[in-house]
Design a protein around this nucleic acid. Structure first.
Length: 768
RNA sequence: GCCCAGGUGGCGGAAUUGGUAGACGCGAUAGACUCAAAAUCUAUUGAUGGCAACAUCAUGAGAGUUCGAUUCUCUCCUUGGGCACCA
């Protein structure tokens, strides 16, 4: 009797059974080798899941399921990165408690993700907004604080006037807020900083030790911006020829061009400018310029772009150590205070920017100068573009920074026994223009006793950026319920590092770099066993709306996976998302094309009525299929893996029957892609145990011989005929067969054969 | 401006890394089944010419290397993405 493929019934049935039996629960104490696969945990937005979310989850699910069948104890966890602005802005608008909003959103996300049959170990679920979790985020922050790597400083920061919060450099895109697009202003504010620059060198170098996609390594390297050069000292003189005691250090990657250096430029913020006030004759003009640049926003600097401005420091000169000549000193905002030494020697003959500046202000340009040896002047130094990480946010929905200001004792960390420092409830979530967090309004919370002297003290009211919780979450999964430590040493030792981490390209310079930094810091404190968190990192492409535009609520082109699961089933959705295009590239969604994946599953379903004893042809086909599918999964070429499965089914469709042996192997390699239908068909075969407990088939060609294959015959590089040969036939045999072919004969008969090229099992090319 | 990654049928995309270009899927056309439609099955489906076997042209454009190039080299056009006065 033929049964219809009822995806609703089958998928619900197996999801319930798997959960009940805990099939995907990861053991902490297993004799098996571990495998840790990781996806970037989602931000549970109010819009719910859209079809783009699950793509990486499905991809890593396929890897994880294959690893389980290969005998690994697989850790494949999930959680929620739930602090952040969208939830807070929603709370401001509606007056609802962000905790409730988060609860509702995560409930929706959880239900939706569960409906896809992804083999997450839900028992390890974490949530960054849970005090039991952020206790440890705060604890790690205190370790940074104690080591002096979290420090407070007054500085110009990127301020978003709309979100009313400071931003990290990484969160500023083209001078605008990454999130809302508002032009970023400069504001002088006391800010918490994390000294990521202390790790710049190792963050760069250790990329050699990990297996990241080349473009990811490149992205990180460019952002860190390591640059080797020299620091050269220029002495300063006053016009009477008197040497001034100060010197200016310039940074250059081209010390060999020093004979061409005709002036020196300092960044307007350079400290030396203030020291030379007495000697500078045009101080008014200089001071005015300094003020002007300070008031320029990032965007102003961009718009005015390549138009160079600057002022000469009259009354002082620098002495070129190579030519011994006196050369002018300028200040200009094309020289950045934060890079190198904040000052340069200008070589207008060699550098386009210096040339432009020299031409505008009529400064000497010396062409054809002598090249100096690299080592002759100055000393070698390495500098980085990377800057320290602005770690304060003046917003509500984040981890409170656990520090207390005491009038007597200064900054005092909240004692570890008082952690978590719970984020208090407030009446109003609205941030203030004064740049203070809404927490500042809760006097009961702000005014505390100093933990040291018990005197009057105030709490820090800034919160952490939402990158904080995600900088270490992968460690928590190894031991998510631990109350004494962020994770036990034992579990960390067994599970870390993450073996394979897949995520979005947009996190290359943010999350990925931050979490490597935190990890290295914890490693230095001997709190984690490895110096790198992730062994391997790959990335996935986005799913775009129909027609290739971004899916967005405002365009109304968002596809909700619920609808697809309902009409076609989770297995169809999974298969389609893997089949639609290369995993690492963006692909446009097409509801029209889904039907192909569904038809494929139906054909598999109907195959159960064709199972029979051995047939040789099918044996060869299945071994080929296993080989290709196995290697495609490892390369994340899921699209061609699915197509290989389809080809197999098409071949079988032409035959009367399929051997039970081949069929079982097929179900096993299908199961990572379409776990529900594979499990159902497995059970129909009479198996008591889950297909999840089987082992991954290894392709075996040893029994296969005398296979007949088709190859091409070319004449002068053009395909003229096809001939049948036996697999691995050698050149002589193939040549004979080729010349026996009628069409070949016709073309060759009256011509001289000059040469024959033979590629085994592929083609033969006759040059005439 | 600089650095990456792309450009292949009507559409999404394959091509064992120098070896039969267009796998697989969608769509389309015709036929079978049906009172009919849907579903399913069968066949065809890069373009041009021809009744035909077949021929010619085709992987953004142009050159080159090679018996043979989507693949390698150079120049240019173009689409995404990243960085953007980083000395």
């Amino acid at each position: 009797m033929v049964k219809l493929y009822d995806h609703k019934k089958i998928e619900k049935k197996w999801q319930t059974i798997w959960e009940k039996k805990g099939v995907y629960k990861t053991l902490n104490n297993s004799k098996k080798k571990k495998y840790y696969s990781l996806i970037e945990f989602p931000y549970p937005s109010g819009d719910g899941l859209h079809v783009g979310h699950p793509r990486p989850y499905i991809g890593m699910d396929i890897i994880s399921r294959k690893r389980r069948l290969e005998g690994f104890n697989v850790l494949y966890p999930i959680g929620w990165d739930a602090f952040g602005l969208p939830t807070e802005n929603y709370a401001i608008k509606t007056g609802k408690d962000p905790r409730m909003v988060t609860k509702k959103n995560t409930d929706t996300f959880r239900r939706q993700i569960k409906s896809l049959g992804i083999s997450f170990d839900w028992s390890r679920e974490i949530n960054t907004t849970d005090p039991k979790y952020y206790k440890w985020t705060q604890w790690i922050f205190l370790q940074f604080f104690k080591k002096g790597l979290a420090y407070k400083t007054k500085k110009d920061i990127n301020w978003c006037p709309k979100d009313k919060t400071g931003l990290a450099d990484e969160e500023v895109v083209n001078g605008c807020c990454e999130r809302c697009g508002t032009a970023v202003e400069k504001r002088e504010k006391e800010q918490w900083m994390l000294a990521i620059t202390k790790y710049a060198d190792r963050l760069d170098k250790d990329l050699d030790t990990v297996d990241y996609l080349p473009q990811i390594k490149l992205g990180q390297r460019n952002w860190i911006g390591r640059s080797e050069g020299a620091e050269i000292e220029f002495k300063i003189s006053t016009p009477s020829g008197v040497q001034h005691p100060t010197i200016v250090k310039v940074f250059t990657t081209r010390p060999d061009t020093i004979f061409g250096a005709t002036y020196v430029v300092l960044a307007p913020e350079h400290e030396l400018v203030q020291k030379l006030t007495a000697q500078i004759k045009n101080w008014d003009e200089v001071e005015k310029y300094i003020k002007e640049t300070k008031n320029k926003t990032e965007i102003d600097r961009n718009v005015e772009d390549k138009i160079k401005t600057g002022v000469e420091l009259k009354g002082v000169k620098a002495i070129n150590p190579a030519t011994k000549e006196e050369i002018p000193i300028w200040i200009a905002d094309y020289v950045l205070a934060t890079y190198g030494t904040g000052s340069i020697m200008a070589v207008p003959a060699d550098d386009a920017r210096d040339r432009e500046f020299a031409e505008k202000f009529v400064l000497p340009i010396v062409e054809n100068y002598t090249k100096a040896g690299f080592e002759d002047f100055g000393k070698k130094i390495t500098t980085f573009k990377l800057r320290d990480w602005v770690f304060s946010r003046q917003r509500y929905w984040g981890e409170p920074i656990p520090v207390i200001y005491c009038e007597k004792c200064g900054m005092v960390p909240v004692p570890e026994k008082d952690l978590p420092l719970i984020l208090p409830k407030v009446k109003n979530y609205q941030p203030t223009d004064s740049g203070e967090s809404p927490l500042a309004n809760i006097s009961k919370w702000v005014n505390v006793k100093c933990p040291k002297c018990k005197g009057n003290a105030k709490r820090e009211t800034d919160t952490m950026p939402n990158w904080a919780g995600s900088s270490w979450y992968y460690l928590r999964y190894t031991d998510s319920k631990n109350k004494k430590e962020f994770a036990s040493k034992k579990n960390l030792k067994y599970f870390t590092p993450v073996d394979w981490y897949n995520g979005g390209n947009e996190h290359t310079t943010l999350h990925l770099l931050y979490s490597r930094f935190w990890h290295k810091f914890l490693f230095d404190l001997n709190l984690v066993p490895t110096s790198e968190p992730y062994k391997k990192r790959t990335s996935h492409g986005m799913i775009l709306g129909e027609g290739g535009v971004k899916m967005s609520k405002s365009l109304g082109n968002v596809i909700n996976p619920d609808d697809i699961v309902k009409t076609y089933g989770a297995d169809t959705l999974r298969l389609y998302e893997m089949f639609m295009g290369p995993f690492d590239q963006s692909v446009a969604w097409s509801t029209e094309s889904i039907i192909g994946s569904r038809r494929f599953l139906e054909r598999i379903w109907n195959l159960q009525y064709k199972i029979q004893k051995n047939k040789k042809y099918v044996e060869f086909e299945i071994e080929k299929t296993i080989k290709k599918v196995s290697s495609d999964i490892e390369d994340m070429k899921f699209n061609t893996a699915v197509s290989t499965l389809m080809i197999f089914i098409n071949e079988i469709g032409k035959l009367e029957s399929i051997s039970e042996n081949a069929y079982e192997k097929f179900l096993k390699i299908l199961s990572p892609f379409a776990p529900h239908i594979a499990e159902e068909l497995w059970q129909i075969l009479g198996h008591q145990k889950s297909i999840n407990l089987e082992s991954w088939p290894v392709s075996d060609f040893s029994k296969i011989q005398d296979e007949e294959i088709k190859i091409a015959v070319q004449i002068n590089g053009k395909v003229k005929a096809e001939i049948m040969i036996m697999l691995n036939d050698d050149e002589e045999i193939v040549k004979k067969k080729a010349f026996a072919n009628k069409t070949v004969l016709k073309q060759v008969v009256d011509k001289e054969v000059r040469k024959v090229f033979f590629v085994k099992n592929r083609l033969i090319n006759i040059v005439v």
